[in-house]
């Protein structure tokens, strides 16, 4: 059910503005030759994803229901929901869930807002726009691990440039132990993630904006609409589907993105910056693959449920138009 809804919105990308010009011609000559072609076209993708993604994933999932600890594999009996129970009973679990929400929301909202503003400003041509774009887009090309290490170095308490600058400007008077105090550490990792993610939104929103036709703006101008009204009555609705899908994909990715945190704090201090996926790495390092798999399944189901609700919530807006 969830998947059908998702498919709706993915397809919605093309049908939001104009009538879907392709769908009515789709049901056509569907003979056995076409079917064979289709099969041949789909086969490579299906084989690759089947072998290298689905097989290991399904095979790995069964560990979630077994006592699968690499430290001692002599007894790998089935334990039913035991691993899930251990996870839920863990007093840290609440903190980790809370952190995950803070991490996703805290990273996402500024990414959307700044990304949107950036895209609006970049929409019109100006001198050196090409060069500007190349620089502004570059964080997207840096790996999560590297971003984590880079910010870990910049947030270093004694030799980090962040403390040095803040002290020069006079905002702080003594160095802040950024990665050693839970609240500061959470702030630091979120700043790093915002830095990384703004670009992605800027690109996607810019692309969407450029596809909104000038006629629509001109019509709005004739109606005497001001800038703000134009934004809310023309721009936002026109790109809402792209925006909706981009946000959904982004939420899924941020949720599943341990790289920056792992490189910067490793989930510390005192496990206070763990999100679900970094905690999963921690569990695998302890060797308990059973529990880690259980946590992985929880992630998959949470995201599926979330995606379903999310898509149900965004869909009506599309129909209103």
């Amino acid at each position: 059910m969830a998947l059908n809804a998702e498919q709706e919105v993915v397809r919605g990308r093309s049908s939001a503005g104009a009538p879907p010009q392709t769908s009515y011609t789709r049901k056509k000559r569907f003979n056995s030759k076409t079917a064979l072609t289709m099969l041949a076209f789909m086969a490579p993708a299906a084989i690759f994803v089947g072998i290298f993604t689905y097989y290991p994933m399904i095979s790995g999932s069964q560990m979630a229901f077994r006592n699968w600890n690499l430290n001692d594999l002599s007894d790998t009996s089935w334990v039913g929901w035991g691993n899930f129970r251990t996870l839920f009973e863990n007093p840290e679990f609440g903190t980790i869930v809370r952190n995950t929400i803070v991490w996703v929301v805290g990273s996402l909202v500024p990414q959307v807002v700044i990304g949107f503003a950036l895209a609006l400003f970049l929409k019109r041509k100006f001198k050196f726009r090409g060069a500007y774009q190349a620089f502004i887009f570059f964080p997207w090309a840096v790996s999560g691990f590297l971003i984590g290490m880079l910010f870990r170095w910049m947030f270093n308490a004694e030799f980090g440039v962040v403390n040095d600058l803040l002290m020069k400007v006079g905002i702080i008077h003594s160095p802040v132990p950024w990665l050693a105090e839970p609240g500061f550490a959470m702030t630091a990792i979120i700043i790093a993630n915002i830095w990384y993610g703004v670009t992605f939104f800027a690109i996607m929103i810019l692309a969407a904006l450029q596809s909104v036709s000038d006629e629509m703006y001109e019509a709005a101008a004739i109606d005497g609409a001001g800038k703000i009204r134009t934004f809310f009555s023309i721009t936002l609705p026109a790109i809402s589907v792209t925006l909706g899908l981009t946000i959904l994909l982004r939420i899924i990715w941020i949720f599943n993105f341990p790289d920056i945190i792992w490189a910067m704090t490793g989930g510390g201090p005192a496990d206070q910056t763990h999100i679900i996926t970094t905690y999963m790495i921690k569990i695998t390092q302890k060797g308990d693959y059973g529990q880690a798999s259980a946590l992985g399944l929880i992630v998959v189901f949470t995201l599926m449920l979330f995606a379903a609700f999310y898509l149900m919530a965004v869909r009506p807006r599309k129909e209103n138009r």
């Binding site: 270093n156 004694e158 160095p175 132990p177 950024w178 990665l179 050693a180 105090e181 510390g268 201090p269």
Partner: peptide, 15 residues
Amino acid sequence: PPSSVAWGYPEMVQG
């Protein structure tokens, strides 16, 4: 140092 809450082997040695 207050930041040593998060110090592992490399940070200690570097410190």
